[in-house]
Amino acid sequence: MRSDYLSSGPGFAEGEVIERIEAFRRRRPRLRDELVTLAHGAGGKSSAALVDAVFVEAFRNEALEELGDGAVLALPSGERLALSTDSFVVQPLRFPGGSIGHLAVHGTVNDLACSGAVPRWLSAAFVLEEGFPVAELKEIVADMAAAAAAAGVQIVTGDTKVVPRGAADGLFVTTAGVGVIPAGRTFPAVRTGDRLILSGTMGDHGTAVMLARGDLAIEADVDSDTAAVSDLVETLLAAAPGTRWLRDPTRGGVGTTCNELAQATGLGVVLDEAALPVRPVVNGACEMLGIDPLHVANEGKVVAVVGPDEVDDGLAAMRAHPLGRDAVVVGEITEQPGSTVVLRTAFGGTRIVDMLVGDPLPRIC
């Protein structure tokens, strides 16, 4: 499932390239399906179409329409909170580098952090299949407790449901979180000339989970990157307080996250293929599977848009943090082609990076 391709090399006149880009840009995800499929949960085009046509249409309000990692809510006192929620259905439940328990904490903590909040409290709801081993449940809950303590959050409420054997895939976990946005913290509008920083290597989590399933006949030493990025975000914002935009590139990967940025701003995102950090073992596994690392999930990374006057300070601060030691500038914001992500290839051409199409991956978050 490679990204749609557009060549700007030999064989295409400049005007034709621009025309093809404009035609591509006008293609918006639309819900055409009558039944829900696994592709609707993959974090790509089908997910966006389902969210727009069903949930945003039904619940439409100003906070929801931002479609951020979390909703930013203003209290009558003038204080602001961020609220986020997520469900976790990964298989296997335990994989190299983590478990569904780690993901359930890290996923919501990271959404709050990328909304500009300091995460404080979580709720946790469990759907258990009849026959699930209590000893395994205790281990997963212990993982959650350890992850929450390390992230500086408390799990303060929750719920448990048990369904008949065969009605669930062992264990599903849903977490919701609340964070406090520091007074005066704002994110200025994204502008042309801004730079994109990626905090580390792409695709580690998705690749680790795919290989852990054991049905791909590939052996490789890959650990998930699952981690709470809240302290990394605070480190970046201290060094680059004018940071424009933050996201953790989970389902759909960096490619889909950059498309969300382009569509939200109407600006272009130009990525440099040579700068994109991918571990050789991850790149090799993706090549064998025919998957673009740009579309493989991460669970401990941040994409940040930083102004050119602060990018050096922000990059240095991230590299000084354990979770950001491999941080690199991977692209820039341009006026054209608007609402589109373009990759400058190592061969001197360009190709459009679309949102993830279909469901090429097993459930990974």
Rank of each mutant, 00 (worst) to 15 (best):
S3V: 07
Y5G: 06
G9R: 15
P10F: 10
F12N: 10
R28C: 04
G41V: 08
A42I: 08
S46V: 10
F55N: 12
F55W: 14
F59K: 12
R60T: 14
A63F: 04
E66C: 11
L67G: 08
G68M: 09
V72E: 03
G78Q: 00
A82I: 01
T85C: 06
S87T: 15
Q91G: 04
P92R: 03
P92Y: 00
F95H: 02
P96F: 01
N110F: 00
W121D: 01
L122P: 01
A124C: 15
V127N: 03
G131Q: 10
G131I: 12
V134A: 13
E136G: 08
I140T: 02
A142T: 11
A146K: 06
A147Q: 00
A147F: 01
A149V: 05
G152R: 05
Q154W: 04
D159M: 13
K161S: 11
V163E: 06
P164D: 05
G170R: 00
F172Y: 14
T174P: 02
V178T: 01
P182D: 05
G184L: 13
R185I: 08
P188C: 09
P188T: 07
M202P: 01
L211H: 01
D223Q: 15
A228D: 06
P249I: 02
P249T: 10
T250V: 13
G253Y: 06
G253F: 10
T256S: 11
N259H: 11
Q263P: 00
T265F: 11
P280L: 12
P280D: 10
G284E: 15
E287D: 12
L289T: 06
L289D: 04
V296Q: 05
N298I: 06
G307K: 00
P308T: 07
V311F: 04
D313C: 13
A316N: 07
R325C: 09
P337K: 02
P337E: 02
S339R: 05
A346I: 12
T350I: 12
V353A: 11
